[in-house]
Design a protein around this nucleic acid. Structure first.
Lengths: 195, 195
DNA sequence: TCTTTTTCGGACCATTTAATCAAGAATGGA
DNA sequence: TCCATTCTTGATTAAATGGTCCGAAAAAGA
């Protein structure tokens, strides 16, 4: 009973990613936020709590979504190199798509808040170790499958490098509008897996 | 004639880097800024103009300093690989030094403002192309000196990659406090130059 | 019809913001 | 000594900030 919500909470959450990604957490005033979300002020506070609560929710939602897809792709049987290539191609595709690239930038805003919001810091730390482990296990499997040469002695370092590269690509996308630059960076990044 | 300035303007500029780097541009209130700089409010406005003016000055000062050193190192005769290794080791050393790492983070705050402050955007674009060219010329020289194998066919891509890696390292430093992670990332990053 | 829930919009709050102005004290060269 | 410059401090401004409260309208199930 009672009136139904008129907006899809996850759709609004997605819009929040775009707004926070574009202006940053501190740079997003309540007015900008409401305009971007397209809902009334009271609806925001009723549904998500404070501005900070909404920010944290958006960050977690985005991260969980991306991380889950990433881990699933890494765990899928078959060529590990192909999986990693897929992952980075997908990132590039998202960053080149005018509609999708906006929400990626919330990662930047989130990283900015790491030193100031303990909840964000803890969440990131946990997510990073989860992803690093997924990369590491995949690399071990790659080695066992004969996809890597003896040149790749330190698989732990390689896992950390790949995990870090994902974050850094969105940074690169913010600095350049030239898609070729992005492709170049990815190409060289993946060459770390060559024998 | 007249009273002399009591503070060294470049020293204060360096402090501004630290403050802006820690809190971000929007996250730095005037009070925080003044506390960090250790000067009176009126002295700030007399010497640097508005808060935004000071921010832009700090970003430019930091960038010019770092870029000049980088280009100089790349242009020095001798092994190019050694030069690039030096550059990244220097970055790592700065990011590990509790005193020096703070000011590095102003790059992050600056990148955040790229979409909103045209002057910052233009400055970054110019600086990036300058650095990319320096890397590219150095890589051509490396190839001529026989430091690179035929595996490195696309020196332009490699130059863009190296330039981007510098920025991304400070991002990694913000996410992890473990210096070993930083070392691992640098190790793999530089392996792109291996034959 | 009645009740519950949500939406919407405006009013309102205390706080904080960046920035300016003013005035007195300190400093140093002419 | 005189003047120019800087430092320091406090007062002040006008706007914007995040957040709360209230009331009316709308919708959906009982």
């Amino acid at each position: 009973m009672g009136r139904n919500k008129e907006f899809d909470t996850t759709v609004v959450l997605r819009k929040a990613m775009e707004v926070f990604g574009h202006y940053g957490y501190e740079g997003t005033s309540l007015q900008i936020l409401l305009d971007g979300l397209g809902i009334a002020r009271q609806s925001l506070y009723d549904t998500y709590g404070t501005k900070k609560d909404l920010f944290i929710s958006a960050v977690k939602h985005y991260t969980n979504e991306k991380s889950a897809a990433l881990v699933a792709r890494l765990n899928r049987p078959g060529s590990v190199k192909a999986a990693i290539t897929d992952i980075f191609c997908e990132i590039a595709a998202a960053l080149k798509d005018e509609a999708r690239r906006k929400e990626c930038f919330i990662m930047h805003s989130a990283i900015d808040q790491v030193p100031h919001v303990p909840e964000i810091a803890a969440f990131f730390e946990q997510d990073a170790s989860r992803l690093e482990e997924a990369y590491y296990r995949a690399l071990v499997r790659a080695y066992e499958q004969g996809e890597l040469s003896d040149r790749h002695s330190d698989l732990r370092a390689l896992a950390r490098y790949l995990n870090h590269s994902r974050y850094s690509l969105t940074q690169a996308a913010k600095l350049t509008s030239d898609p070729k630059v992005l492709d170049d960076i990815i190409k060289v990044t993946l060459s770390a897996l060559d024998s």
